[in-house]
Amino acid sequence: MKTRNLIYRYLAIISIALGANFANAQSFPDRPITLVVPNPPGGLVDTSARLLSEPLTRVIGQPIIVDNKPGASGNVAYQFVAKAKPDGYTLLISYSGYHVGNPSLMDKLPWDPVKDFSPVALLTVSTNVIAVHPSVPVNNLKELIAYAKANPGKLNYASQGNGSVSHIGTEIFKQNTGIDLVHVPYKGSGPAIQDVLAGQVQLFITTPPSVMQHVQSGKLKGLAVTGKSRHPGMPNVPTTAEAGLPSFQLESWVALYAPAGTPAPVIAKLTESVKKSLALPEVKERSDAAGVELRYLTPTAMDALLKKELPYWDKAIKSANIKLD
Rank of each mutant, 00 (worst) to 15 (best):
S118K: 14
D107G: 14
L91P: 10
V36L: 03
S118I: 06
S104A: 15
N24F: 15
P55K: 04
V36G: 02
L109P: 11
L144D: 09
V114S: 02
V114N: 01
L11A: 12
R31N: 05
V132R: 06
P119N: 02
V81I: 10
L109Y: 05
N21V: 15
D107M: 04
A49F: 00
I65H: 09
G42S: 13
N39P: 00
P55W: 02
Q26F: 12
S53G: 09
Q62C: 06
D107T: 10
V59S: 07
V45G: 06
L51E: 04
G19R: 03
V132M: 06
Q26N: 05
V120M: 11
G19M: 07
N139T: 14
P103S: 07
K85H: 10
V136I: 15
E143D: 14
V120Q: 09
P63A: 09
P113N: 06
L18I: 10
F28Q: 03
A121T: 02
V129M: 12
D46R: 00
P134Q: 12
S48A: 15
A12K: 07
P119S: 04
N68K: 00
L11F: 13
A84D: 09
K108H: 15
Y89S: 12
T90I: 13
G74A: 10
M106E: 14
F80K: 11
V120S: 12
S15P: 00
L35Q: 03
N21K: 05
I60Q: 07
I145A: 09
T34Q: 12
A25S: 15
A82Y: 05
Q62R: 14
K69W: 10
V37S: 03
K108L: 10
L35H: 04
L51T: 03
V37M: 02
E143V: 13
R50D: 11
G74Y: 05
R50S: 13
I64Y: 04
F28W: 13
N21E: 14
V138G: 11
P137M: 10
T127C: 01
G61M: 08
P63G: 09
K69R: 15
N24I: 11
P41W: 00
P41L: 00
K142Q: 15
P103I: 01
P70H: 03
N24Q: 14
P41A: 09
V136F: 07
D46W: 00
I13A: 15
W111F: 15
V37K: 04
V76G: 04
I130K: 04
S135R: 11
L56A: 14
A12S: 14
N102M: 13
G97S: 11
L141S: 11
S73H: 10
Y98Q: 13
G43H: 04
G97D: 13
Y78D: 10
F22N: 03
I13H: 02
V59H: 08
F22Q: 13
V59R: 11
F117K: 10
D87H: 07
F80P: 00
R58M: 07
A49T: 02
A82Q: 05
F28E: 02
L105R: 08
Y78E: 07
A25D: 06
G19C: 09
I93R: 06
S104V: 02
S126P: 03
V100K: 04
V125W: 00
Y10K: 08
D30R: 11
V76W: 01
P137Q: 12
V132F: 02
N39L: 09
P40S: 10
K85A: 14
G19D: 05
L141R: 12
S96K: 09
T124V: 09
G61N: 09
S48N: 01
